[in-house]
Amino acid sequence: MKHPGRMVRQVLSSMLRKPATVRYPFVKVTMPKRFRGRLRFYAERCIGCRLCMRDCPTDAIQIRKIADKQFEADIDMAKCIYCAQCVDSCPKKALESTLDFELAQLDRDKLRQTFRGQPPASQKPPEDPQDKP
């Protein structure tokens, strides 16, 4: 039956419900496991094939040879579009997407990151990430 105020009951019951609003940034949110956030580079795995550089749509990665079988990566998070094609392209799983999404910066240079070999112990790569096909 047509009548005005069809939603009255529903909106009044909303008074008793918990607000649907997510209280970010007061309450932090975590991203799902597959989320494509800030990239991380494991220099010791890199073999310098540069497939990531070749496939990157925005030229956000530069791989440089610093010594024999040693490479470093310059990743510009300001250029990155977070497609994670580099992660898929890499034959040695030297690149990984993290769940970090809070990347806003006032200074563009802070989004540029250089990854060299021998990461600190806390950044030890997990053995073969499970949920990253």
């Binding site: 909303s14 008074m15 419900r17 649907a20």
Partner: peptide, 9 residues
């Protein structure tokens, strides 16, 4: 208005 719309307001 916000409460009725299930928001915080």
């Amino acid at each position: 208005h916000a409460k009725l719309q299930n928001r915080i307001g």
